[in-house]
């Protein structure tokens, strides 16, 4: 018995580790699979959604993002290149999903929504991502965001008032709530034609492949 006991101990620990790993994997697997038809972006009023690209595009890419999240910032440049390359067939929608763990994520989302009230959402969106490394490390971000507002030609007084107002907070909260209903837990979470993209595919090559597949599906369907 003494000769086999160590092998039994090792085997038990091996099986327990493997079992725990499988249970954890199942629990952590992304739960977002698809956006129900009733919640599709096309059902909403255009003014409620931040979208760029043709409204009748073959592919709609919906992103849940946090302006202070490093992976979101890292994905932004390749995503913009994809937007340019698929200009006629891709519509991009952005929704806020700021995390409390990121010190300035909510302020950044409010700044983008305040810019939206003056019709400059995407300009602020692009600027916030481009300058993420700068403002993310700053203690007081408001003066920086004010300067960004000036750079993209916003009425500064109105921007300051809107950024602290209830309307932008309600919009951010509404985006977040929608994300939670869809099972969004991390950012960026991306849906292509209402189907969620696995986190392991959040890279330019896999995204292009997913968009190509969606275009092909649409072509075959029509």
């Amino acid at each position: 018995m003494k000769r086999v006991l160590p092998f039994i101990i090792v085997a038990v620990v091996g099986f327990v580790t493997l079992g725990a790993g499988i249970v954890l994997y199942r629990a952590k697997r992304p739960q977002t699979t698809a956006i129900p038809k009733a919640m599709g972006a096309s059902k909403e009023h255009a003014e409620e959604v931040h979208a760029r690209g043709p409204a009748n595009a073959a592919v709609t890419l919906e992103e849940y993002g946090d302006f202070q999240c490093p992976p979101c910032g890292g994905l932004e440049v390749p995503l913009q290149q994809i937007e340019r390359d698929y200009a006629s067939s891709l519509r991009v929608i952005f929704r806020n999903f700021p995390f409390a763990v990121h010190e300035h994520a909510h302020e950044a989302a409010y700044a983008a929504e305040a810019a939206s009230l003056q019709g400059r959402f995407w300009e602020m969106h692009d600027l916030l991502y481009r300058e993420q490394a700068v403002w993310a490390k700053t203690k007081d971000v408001q003066p920086l965001f004010d300067s960004y507002a000036g750079m993209i030609g916003l009425n500064l007084e109105r921007f300051k008032k809107d950024a602290g107002g209830e309307q932008v907070k309600a919009k951010v909260e509404s985006d977040r709530k929608r994300g939670e209903e869809l099972g969004v837990k991390n950012t960026p979470t991306i849906f292509i034609n209402n189907q969620s993209v696995p986190p392991t595919s959040l890279n330019p090559v896999a995204l292009r492949a997913a968009i190509d597949a969606a275009v092909k599906d649409r072509d075959n369907g029509s």
């Binding site: 580790t17 954890l24 999240c69 986190p199 392991t200 959040l202």
Partner: peptide
């Protein structure tokens, strides 16, 4: 065993893609 638990947790995170997205510490990402 303590190291095994830590490494298993991180391996699962990597396999589910959780380390490719954000929801926690930026430094960890």
């Amino acid at each position: 065993l303590a190291g095994l638990a830590d490494a298993t947790y991180l391996a699962v995170q990597a396999l589910t893609g959780e380390t490719m997205v954000c929801g926690g510490s930026p430094d960890c990402f």
